[in-house]
Design a protein around this nucleic acid. Sequence first.
DNA 1: TCTGGGGTCCTAGGACCC
DNA 2: TCTGGGGTCCTAGGACCC
Length: 423
Amino acid sequence: MNKIALVDCNNFYCSVERVFNPKLEHKPVVVLSNNDGCIISRSNEAKALGIKMAEPVYKIMPYLKKNKVSIYSSNYQLYGDMSHRVMTNLNYFVPHIDIYSIDECFINLNGFEHMGLINYSQTIKQKIYQWTGIPVAIGVGNNKVMAKLANHIAKKHKGDGVFQLNSLEQEQKLMKQLELTEIWGIGRRSEKKLKQLGLESVWDFYTSSQMQIKQVMGINGVQLYYALHNQFNNHQELEQSDKKSIASSRSFSTLVSELGPLQQALSNYIMIASKKLRKQGSYTSAMQIYLSTNPFQQNTRQYHNCINIDFAMPCNDSFKLIRIGKSALKKIYKRDYQYHKVGVLLYDLSDNKQIDLFSIDYLPGKEKIRKEKLMRVIDKINQNMGTDTVFSGAQGIKKHWLEKRNYLSQRYTTNWNELLQVN
DNA sequence: TCTGGGGTCCTAGGACCC
DNA sequence: TCTGGGGTCCTAGGACCC
């Protein structure tokens, strides 16, 4: 039987802030989304205060202050770098890792049974904490769904943060206690539909018929059904694959109605997205540009629209994408609206090899090489000297639409000027 | 006054074809 | 006037995830 573990960092963003600010230990901490809009990470103490995930900050600011909750704006450079450290350290323990998100990673424990999987997991947990300062929970199961479930139990229902599902009796006993939405892949909508059929618990789901599940949740539900039954399913594989689409967008700190600043903002997001594109060695054949007013302000005039552009030749050139993106935005832009967000989605991605086949026949070789070289140099400069050391004029210099980040911690690990100081 | 951002996969339905 | 059945491909939107 396959043995897969899910390693999940506890309250990741809050835990990272604590690594560089130990005073925050045992105190309530929250981290906010872009523009300090809503709560996206909570320490256990903050959860105990009843602060909810995705809660708009303005609604609970008095409550946060009253309870002396430490507040941080999200610092993705710091979190991304700390995530990388955790993942690299995991790779020290197992040859195959499958990074699922910034704070979660599946690892393959096949071949480690002789060490005792609980024991080995506890060692991993302890060492990751020792080496990075980040606490993790580890759940072990026969496939990803079961590993995820075990992890959930390790965090919610067991104290020490390591849990293994290893017998049918134990699994079945747990299923009788679990709510449907505690299963990875069953959200609120599916729960509602399942309950309409009289399926109330995970146990009901488990003992239902495959046909009935398919009727409500389609093929995804059937995959989950198989996974819970430890039968063949798509949740066994551990592999890292390239992104199939890359998006970048931000909502503005103040509303914007002129085309010029919207184009500048968009140019910045295209710069971010195309940099990610090159980082994974991909080219894009299609781009979507979108803009919208603030959907929460229902008393103002609403407008949202998008436009898709197909490229004859796959492209990874930021400047070309910006040029095309700006003129696309102009096509869907309407005057006299207060805009809240613009964004870009690159999709229909392909890799180098496929492009090379093309280039022999179609692309003017010299120019292509020259442009690729330019983009590589720019990426390298920005990586070494800091984001936007070199940027496109289209991105603008005074960015008045820039996001609000009033509670930002230092970029302790990625910026020479912001290292931790010790007195 | 103030409500995030980035992904994946599936499905229903339209367009088109014979 | 009456107007079938089946296939493919594409896309927008739904649902879910962190």
